[in-house]
């Protein structure tokens, strides 16, 4: 049975509440995992494990976050993502809104592209 977007959101919200110890009302669609909800690197692995269990899907951290791109010198130079890197990120992360990030391309701002909404879109794409 296909889940509605609201049903997916409700489950994603529950996952984020448990993984990050945040309150229900903090988990809005626009909230960023790193900036607003305080996720650190290990939390993303926790979120992956919990999403897999909650939705019965298999997720690699690379397909959710494209972390392989940022560790590749051909895609990052002087702390900024290159044109080639942006193109690769857009290919690998159709669930994320990269427009705001494209303006600065600063690697340390990368975690802010992951919003609750992007998690919902990612899961919907896997179901």
């Amino acid at each position: 049975m296909t889940m509605t977007k609201d049903e997916v959101f409700a489950k994603v919200r529950e996952v984020l509440e448990e993984a990050l110890g945040v309150d229900e009302d903090e988990v809005t669609p626009q909230a960023t995992l790193g900036g607003d909800l305080g996720a650190e690197s290990i939390d993303y692995l926790d979120i992956v494990f919990r999403l897999e269990k909650a939705f019965g899907i298999k997720i690699s951290q690379a397909e959710l976050m494209a972390d392989n791109v940022l560790s590749d010198p051909q895609y990052v130079q002087d702390g900024k993502v290159t044109d080639l890197g942006m193109s690769e990120l857009r290919k690998q992360l159709p669930h994320a809104d990269l427009d705001a990030f494209d303006a600065s391309r600063q690697v340390d701002e990368f975690p802010n592209i992951f919003t609750v909404e992007s998690m919902v879109k990612f899961v919907q794409g896997k179901l």
Partner: peptide
């Protein structure tokens, strides 16, 4: 063990 992957475990 709850989960085990290349990246870590819970």
């Amino acid at each position: 063990m709850d989960n085990f992957s290349k990246a870590g475990a819970s």
